[in-house]
């Protein structure tokens, strides 16, 4: 039962587009809210999907943000076209950032993106090569 995908919402995220940044995750959040999903799940998905989207904008050459809904869980997935994460362990360290000075001036790149995504997840998968990075973050729905 749990592994049947009910629906996928997908958003194309462009690199370096700080004007559109946040629109995909905002749309995910609003859809889940109108569906009536519980507040604490919304909060976790909001943080995870926002960080995931901002990561695509700052660090990737562009990619896709997906939100997959299952009966008992929600997956947030990103797939990008590179350039890949050199050292995943380091990237998962709080405060470690490879963001440029100009990105930091915009208020991004504090080195909390991946650590926060992992912190609020129930399951966190990451794979990266120069061709691209794949991240899957799972949030289990609370039993009401």
């Amino acid at each position: 039962m749990t592994d049947k995908l009910l629906i996928r919402y997908s958003y194309n995220i462009a690199a370096n587009d700080f004007i559109a940044a946040g629109k995909g995750s905002s749309s995910i959040k609003n859809t889940l809210k109108s569906m009536g999903i519980d507040a604490s799940t919304i909060r976790r998905i909001a943080i995870i999907s926002y960080e995931a989207e901002i990561n695509l904008v700052i660090h990737s050459y562009g990619g896709m943000l997906h939100c997959d809904l299952y009966e008992n869980k929600i997956d947030i997935i990103t797939e990008d076209k590179g350039p890949g994460i050199e050292n995943i362990d380091l990237a998962l360290t709080e405060g470690y950032s490879t963001a440029t000075e100009s990105v930091r001036e915009l208020g991004f790149g504090a080195g909390m993106g991946l650590p926060n995504m992992k912190k609020y997840s129930d399951d966190f998968d990451i794979a990266s090569s120069r061709e691209g990075t794949f991240i899957k973050i799972t949030v289990l729905l609370q039993e009401v």
Binding site: L6, M35, G36, I37, L69, E71, N72, V144
Partner: peptide, 8 residues
């Protein structure tokens, strides 16, 4: 009680 299938 929330039902994801119905909500979708």
């Amino acid at each position: 009680k929330f039902n994801m299938k119905e909500a979708v």
